[in-house]
Structures are given as C-alpha cells and as structure tokens.
Design a protein around this nucleic acid. Structure first.
Lengths: 174, 174
DNA sequence: CTCCACTCGTTAGGGTACGAACGAAAAGAG
DNA sequence: CTCTTTTCGTTCGTACCCTAACGAGTGGAG
C-alpha cells in the first residue's frame, strides 16, 4: 500500500523529469505521509466501527459535534466539521432520516436552524464513542509517549500554518 | 476554524457525557489533529494551486502517479492513490476528457488497461509540480528540521499500524 | 418606512467516493 | 478440451463534497 516505488526511486524519477528545478523531497515526504496516514486511519475507523452502524465518517463527526455542543446552529457545525454548508445540508438530511438528529428554527433569528440529538442519537453516540476511542488508542499506540505529543504538536502547527494563507502572496483571512 | 470549544472544554463535556467510561484524550487529540491537518493542508493546496488549473485533489494525485511511473495499470494506480477501482474509473474519465491521460488495452492480458500521460498532461505536471512543491515547502516550514523528520516518521508508523487490522480482533491482511 | 447590503440554509449541477454486481478474459482443475 | 474460479475494469445506486445561484430573513442608511 505504501507504493512499489521507494522514495529514492521517486526522487530520481522526479529529478529527471524536472531537470534543473529544485525540489524539496523532505517537504514532499511530510505532506505525502500526512495524507497516507489520514486516509489509512479513516479507512480503518470506517471499517472497524462506523460501517457496522451504517454511519459515514462525516456523519459521525457531525454527530460528535452536536453531541458535545448539545445544541448548535448549522453554520457552526459546518465550521467545526470543516465542510461547506451545502454538504452539511445533505448529511443532516441523512442523519435526520435515521432519526439521530432533529432540526428546529431559531426564534430570535428565523434564518437559523438549530440542531440537537434525539434519544436514539444520544444512545448511538454513547455506545459508539467508547469503541471509537478504543481504536484511537490502538492507532496512537504505534507511537511512544514523547512521539505522540510531538506528532500532535506538529500537526497542530501545520494546521494553523495552512490556514494562514499561501506561500506566494500575503492574503489575509477575515 | 479550530473550533470555538477548546480541548479542555471538550474534555470536560465528554467526561460528563461518558461518566465512568475511560477515555484516552491524548489518543483522541492525535487522531483529531491528524484530520484537521490533512483537511487544512488539502484545502490550502486545492485553493492555491489545483483549482486554478481545473484539477481536483484526486485528479492531481493520479496524474502524479502516472507521471512518475510513465506507464501503469489502473489497478496499480488505485492501489497507489488509495481509492477504489470504481472511483478511479470516474476520475480517469475526467482526466481523459481534458486530454491529460490516454488509456490503452494491454496485449499480454486483454483485461488490463494501461494509462500514460499525453503531451498536454506532461506539460501540465511540469508546470504544476514545482508550484505544488513550493507550497509543500511553505507548509513544512512551520516545523523545525528535527520536528519535520519526527512527524514524517510518526505518520508513517501510524499508516502501517492502521493497515494492520483492528484493535480488538486479530485479523490478517493478504 | 423604504431601500440595500448582508447572512442564513437550501438547491442545482457536476465531480469524487464506496460496495456490490456485471461481462470479459485468464488461469487452474480434471 | 471443458468446467470452475479468479481477476480485470466498468456500471449501478447511493452518499458525500464543492461552487454558484437562490429565496427568505435581518439590519443598517437615509
């Protein structure tokens, strides 16, 4: 799964294809490994836990966010989960059809939609989350204590860095 | 984007919701940060580079793999990219429509389809990849030299670990 | 109060994602 | 050689995911 070409082979190939251009293979490896890891971990958790309950990855994350906040507006869910509002509309429809969440209109601002967990939804999370965390422990167990902290820190730094605009220009966010 | 609730708040909430169940918040933080980072980095690269060329993330990764291998069977692309064969069929159709790749039937085994880059595809990669790597350098620059190596190692370990079966049972892969 | 700029969630349209089922082709068994 | 099993890429159905455009609601300017 990690690719039949080794890093050295890939480097040689790319060097040939881009003769004269300087490529940073260390930076490439970090980003590449980030996505391999995220993909592998996600597939692992979907296979071992989520699929058994008929739940998608995004569906679970949405459920988790609503569970922790207890009551939350859809725009905040989208922000928290990291998807567009349009995507969330579809996901919420699925979760509502399964009777895990309920939507209601805000009285203060009638544009807003407030989401809560149903009884079924709460029971589902209460059962799933410990299973989920058990797999998280399994995954984190591949790292030593120090390494685990280092990885969490490094990932957090990259997240913040990625959100603060591009390498070339000096754009600002709101 | 990192959530209006701090990790401490979340911990307290979850502790209340799961009274009596032991939850490992360190493990949770590693997995959570992994996905925040992957999502942020992917969005960053899509916005800054890929969208400008009308290219999706997966489309780019497929193009990259074909570029490095020069000639590759679709089953190997799927393995390398980390998607299902079904997904790849659709992505290849898109890339073919844009005239970036070409497909042909293998003569030794007529079930196989072999993919290559067209001239347009090669030119595209030769232009995009250095831009892409520049952003990778920017992203990796948030980490120190030692930290960068540590992160790459930790991510690789987690990838392998995630692919080697669940926490509970003793399944084996092929 | 009226107009206008803004924000809310939804819809429309197209690409990506999966498992399951498919026909074609290849490889093994007898 | 035939029969069965396996493997290939594709198709089908459904869900996710994005941007752009939309109608509804809010709030500020005059």
């Amino acid at each position: 799964m990690a690719g039949a070409h080794t890093l050295q082979e890939t480097e040689r190939q790319v060097s040939t294809l881009l003769r004269g251009m300087k490529i940073d293979f260390k930076a490439m490896a970090v980003v590449s490994n980030l996505f391999r890891a995220a993909s592998a971990v996600r597939n692992h958790l979907e296979r071992e836990i989520l699929s058994r309950h008929g739940l998608s990855w995004t569906g679970f994350v949405v459920l988790w966010v609503v569970w922790v906040w207890q009551e939350i507006e859809t725009r905040d869910i989208a922000e928290e989960v990291g998807t567009s509002k349009a995507t969330l509309t579809g996901v919420l429809k699925t979760l509502e059809r399964e009777n895990w969440i309920a939507k209601r209109q805000s009285k203060e601002d009638r544009r807003l939609v407030i989401v809560t967990l149903t009884g079924d939804g709460k029971r589902l999370m209460k059962r799933i989350f410990p299973e989920f965390n058990k797999e998280e422990i399994y995954l984190a167990a591949s790292l030593g204590t120090k390494e685990r902290r280092g990885a969490a820190d490094a990932l957090r730094k990259m997240t913040i860095h990625a959100q603060n605009g591009p390498a070339t220009k000096g754009k600002k966010k709101s």
